[in-house]
């Protein structure tokens, strides 16, 4: 059987289905979109909010266990940072998930989705790279007891400062690598799938030229 033999059966397809009524259509259009692009942006936003919640929880636990004295400027800075992160992530990740559907051709649609998704993934990745280390630094400022202990240790022994710098120089790049891997592991396959489709469309176009 050839594909052309299917044409007549294809034309008849769906003819027996009764037209959708007004009530069903209203029910459908009032529903939330299940688009994967919308879902992954929402997931990224939830990740950021969950990250902020986790930092707050850990700090409260540390403060309670260690009976630390609180530094007001540190606390204020931390609150500003939390609000800033969520404020940055909301329009970028949550609101962009409400973007209107593409009415252009498939190639343009794919290109548009790849570009916007890559931008959002970069934003998410950078936010994670700086959010947690910054929270650790601010957390130290907030926790006067630990900060004083570190200061004393450094002033008594210059090697301690070297060890701290060295630890940071090793741990931070490792952390950056982990974030990149995690972002790719969680969301990279969606970009890859879109790119595969895009490349498939343009492959012969390039050969023609």
């Amino acid at each position: 059987m050839e594909l052309d033999d299917l044409k007549s059966a294809w034309q008849k397809m769906g003819k027996d289905n009764s037209p959708i009524d007004e009530q069903s259509l209203k029910g459908l259009t009032s529903r939330e979109s299940k688009s994967f692009l919308k879902k992954i942006r929402k997931n990224m936003f939830i990740d950021v909010v969950a990250g902020v919640a986790a930092i707050i929880f850990i700090l409260i636990m540390i403060i309670q266990v260690r009976h630390s004295s609180l530094s007001f400027p540190g606390l204020a800075l931390l609150v500003v940072l939390f609000l800033g992160w969520i404020g940055l992530a909301y329009p970028r990740l949550y609101k962009s998930s409400q973007e209107p559907p593409s009415t252009g051709n498939i190639l343009a649609h794919l290109n548009e989705k790849i570009t916007s998704l890559e931008k959002d993934l970069n934003f998410y990745k950078n936010l994670n790279i700086y959010m947690y280390p910054l929270a650790v630094v601010v957390g130290l400022i907030l926790d006067k007891t630990t900060l004083t202990a570190i200061q004393e240790q450094i002033s008594n022994n210059t090697v301690s400062l070297l060890i701290i710098i060295l630890a940071f120089a090793i741990v931070f790049p490792l952390y950056v690598l982990f974030v990149k891997w995690w972002t790719n592991f969680m969301y990279g396959r969606f970009v890859k799938r879109l790119k595969d489709m895009y490349n498939e469309l343009i492959t012969d176009e390039i050969e023609e030229e």
């Binding site: 009764s18 959708i20 009524d21 069903s24 459908l28 688009s35 994967f36 009415t103 498939i106 649609h109």
Partner: peptide, 20 residues
């Protein structure tokens, strides 16, 4: 455009709207 980027993952739950 909607169909080609409608990736499914995870559990297949019953559709939210009962369609005729």
């Amino acid at each position: 455009n909607t169909a080609i980027t409608f990736f499914r993952k995870g559990k297949k739950k019953r559709s939210e709207v009962e369609l005729n």
